[in-house]
Amino acid sequence: MTSKTGTKRQAENEEWVACIARIRDAQDEAAFARLFAHFAPRVKAFLMRSGADATLAEECTQEVMAALWQKAHMFDPARASAATWIFTIARNRKIDALRKQKRPEPEDLPWGQDPEPDQADVLALQQESDQLGDAIAALPEKQRVLIEKAYFGDLSHSEIAEQTGLPLGTIKSRIRLALDRLRHAMK
C-alpha cells in the first residue's frame, strides 16, 4: 500500500472524475489515456491475483478499459469513486471470464441518477473513500492480508484456510475484527 495525503488523493479522484466526464461528453482520447495509464496496470494486477495468467489478464484488462469508455455515461461520482466504479467493472469481467458465471445485479433504484451530481455529495463520498483507504492501510497486517485475499484472491474462506493453514474460525474472526475496525474508523 502506498501512502499519500488526503488532499493529493482528492485531487487525483477529481481528475479521474473529470476524465470520465470528458470521455462521456467528447470521446476524449487523451483523457482516456490518462485513466488507462493509472488504472489498467492495477486492473491487470487484480486479475492476475485472481488467477488469470498474464495473457488473459492483459486481454481482460483491455476489455475492462473499453467497457469504461462505453459505460462512461453511467458513472455517478456521487455514488462511487472512480476507483470503486472501475473495481466493479473489473470484478464483473473476472466473474465472466475467469469463473465463467453470470452475475445477477440488484435492480436500480426507482429514482435513477441525477444528470449533474451535487459537488458536495461528490466531495463527501471522496472523503469517505479516503478515510476508508487509510483505515484499511492502518489495519494490523494479519487482518489486512485476509481482507485482500478475500477480495483479490478469488478465494472463499475455506480456500483461504487451506492456503494459509489457519483454522476457518480464526479467518472469520480476523475478518470480523477488521470490519469492526473499519466501521469504528468511519464513525
Binding site: M1, R42, K44, E58, Q62, I86, L132
Partner: peptide
C-alpha cells in the same frame, strides 16, 4: 464495493503490454 475500489487503487500494479492502449482504442 468501496473497500474493493480502495484495494484496487492502492495495490501494486503490473505493467501493460507496449501496444495495449492502441489495442484498447481499436476495441472501442
Amino acid at each position: 464495493d468501496t473497500v474493493g475500489g480502495t484495494l484496487l487503487d492502492r495495490c501494486e500494479s503490473v505493467e501493460m503490454g507496449a501496444d495495449s492502449l492502441a489495442a484498447t482504442m481499436a476495441l472501442i
